[in-house]
Computed example of a mutant assay.
Amino acid sequence: MFSKLVPNDPAIAAGSPFTIDEVQYNLIHRISEDRNSLCLKTPDEKVIFAQTPGHKGWLWISNDILATEQTSLIHELINHLTRVSLPGITGDPQTAQMFAGIFSKINNLRYETEMTMEAYHCPTLIKPQGVKGEILKATDEHVDVVADYLAGFMRDAFGTQVEPSSQQTRAATMIAAGGLYLWIVNGHPVAQANISHRSPRHARINAVFTPTQHRKHGYASALVAELCKIIESENRIPMLYADVKNPDSNKVYQNIGFQKCGLIEEIKFF
Score class of each variant (00 low, 15 high):
76 E>K: 15
71 T>E: 11
105 K>M: 10
139 T>V: 03
157 A>T: 05
75 H>T: 11
59 L>Y: 03
107 N>W: 07
83 R>E: 15
111 Y>M: 10
66 L>F: 13
47 V>P: 00
178 G>W: 06
188 H>R: 10
171 A>E: 00
175 I>M: 08
81 L>D: 07
119 A>Q: 05
41 K>W: 03
56 K>T: 12
137 K>V: 03
92 D>R: 14
119 A>M: 09
97 Q>G: 09
134 E>A: 14
96 A>V: 06
52 T>F: 05
184 I>Y: 00
117 M>A: 13
86 L>R: 06
182 L>P: 00
135 I>F: 04
176 A>I: 02
77 L>R: 05
42 T>G: 07
58 W>A: 09
112 E>T: 08
99 F>D: 04
125 L>K: 05
69 E>R: 15
172 A>P: 00
48 I>A: 05
54 G>Y: 04
182 L>T: 03
77 L>H: 03
65 I>R: 12
168 Q>S: 12
57 G>S: 10
128 P>K: 05
122 C>R: 01
134 E>F: 02
89 I>V: 14
67 A>G: 04
128 P>W: 03
105 K>C: 12
166 S>H: 06
60 W>I: 10
186 N>P: 01
140 D>Q: 09
54 G>F: 02
131 V>W: 02
73 L>H: 01
171 A>D: 01
101 G>I: 08
186 N>R: 13
174 M>D: 01
156 D>Q: 09
45 E>K: 10
143 V>T: 10
119 A>F: 01
89 I>A: 07
93 P>W: 10
85 S>Q: 12
143 V>D: 01
55 H>C: 13
68 T>D: 14
148 D>H: 09
144 D>K: 13
122 C>V: 05
108 N>K: 14
89 I>L: 12
43 P>T: 08
122 C>N: 09
116 T>C: 10
147 A>T: 01
97 Q>H: 12
45 E>L: 08
82 T>E: 15
168 Q>H: 11
159 G>Y: 04
171 A>P: 00
158 F>V: 09
106 I>R: 12
184 I>W: 00
66 L>M: 12
105 K>T: 11
52 T>G: 03
165 S>Q: 11
148 D>T: 08
149 Y>V: 02
61 I>V: 14
119 A>L: 04
173 T>S: 14
93 P>D: 12
182 L>K: 01
152 G>A: 10
153 F>V: 07
61 I>N: 05
184 I>A: 04
127 K>D: 03
128 P>T: 06
176 A>D: 08
180 L>M: 11
107 N>L: 12
50 A>H: 02
96 A>N: 07
45 E>I: 04
133 G>W: 00
178 G>N: 07
157 A>I: 07
147 A>L: 06
79 N>K: 15
120 Y>L: 15
164 P>H: 10
186 N>F: 01
133 G>E: 00
95 T>N: 11
176 A>T: 09
147 A>P: 00
135 I>S: 11
